[in-house]
């Protein structure tokens, strides 16, 4: 085979990855658009080890080569994630596009990533050297770059099993289907014993990477709903100051106002 490797097992894939200059290829939807005819691809899209959805005590493990369509059909995948990936492209794109590819492409427009960021997801990265588990947020360095070693593969995405029942998701695209996000917004909210334990908000497609501001979220953590309501104007003002967004097919100003609207609307749906 010219310019490509089709490994029979994950082990073989890792060996090729360690020894050759290859680009991991899962679904191809992003890679083939940026097509480089001389690229050497490592075709990992059909490795059984990367195509499973499993659960353990704390996490739902979504294999890197699981497609969006497959995730939508799986009852274990949280509704928030389904809300996001159901809006990706159109059937053929969801049939090909994978969770690992969405992360690995390192685009802030990747629709599954804001959900992962808001949900405190982790990534399991593997190589012949072993494996490591990293926070999704720390994986990205900026536009188009991330922390994947040249010998590593993304093995799976770890989504927390609990705490994702109260969520909010909106996507702004240019039309009803087949639309690249111009703004995406995911938030997750949780309370324990009348105190807010989580108020995560992630903004996609509005900057070089997906944005999340833990220090601003801290304004609400530990508070009651009533206290959070009092805090709301200051909280929104803080986001207003912090959100420095990029110009794209839509203006930075528009992005910012919509982000703030969605943030406020998400609080409203959480009762704040």
């Amino acid at each position: 085979m010219v310019n490509g490797y089709v490994p029979a097992s994950l082990q073989e894939a890792l060996e090729i990855r360690a020894g050759q200059d290859v680009i991991p290829y899962a679904g191809g939807t992003d890679l083939m658009v940026k097509r480089r005819p001389d690229a050497q691809y490592l075709f990992i899209g059909r490795l059984p080890e990367l195509r499973q959805i499993t659960e353990d005590e704390n996490y739902i493990h979504i294999g890197a080569a699981v497609t969006f369509t497959e995730a939508l059909a799986d009852p274990r995948v949280p509704a928030l994630m389904k809300a996001a990936v159901s809006r990706i492209g159109a059937p053929a794109i969801r049939n090909a596009g994978t969770f690992g590819g969405n992360v690995g492409n390192a685009s802030a427009k990747a629709d599954s990533v804001p959900v992962e960021v808001a949900a405190d997801a982790k990534l399991r990265l593997i190589s012949l050297r072993g494996e490591r588990v990293v926070e999704i947020e720390s994986f990205y360095h900026g536009h188009g770059t991330h922390d994947l070693g040249p010998d590593e593969l993304i093995a799976e995405i770890l989504l927390p099993r609990t705490g994702l029942d109260h969520w909010y998701y909106e996507k702004v695209g240019g039309r009803s289907a087949l639309a690249i996000s111009r703004i995406s917004f995911a938030s997750v909210f949780d309370m324990q014993e009348d105190r807010i334990t989580k108020a995560a908000a992630a903004f996609g497609a509005v900057s070089d990477t997906v944005l999340r501001f833990r220090d601003l979220e801290a304004m609400l953590i530990g508070r009651s709903v009533a206290e959070a309501k009092d805090m709301k104007p200051a909280y929104l003002r803080a986001y207003d100051e912090r959100l420095q967004l990029t110009e794209g097919r839509v203006s930075a100003q528009y992005r910012k106002r919509v982000c703030l609207n969605l943030l406020e609307d998400s609080l409203r749906t959480f009762g704040i």
């Binding site: 490509g4 490797y5 089709v6 679904g27 191809g28 083939m32």
Partner: peptide
């Protein structure tokens, strides 16, 4: 699948 976004190796 959109065959423009599929490499033959896949």
């Amino acid at each position: 699948h959109n065959s423009c976004c599929v490499a033959v190796g896949a």
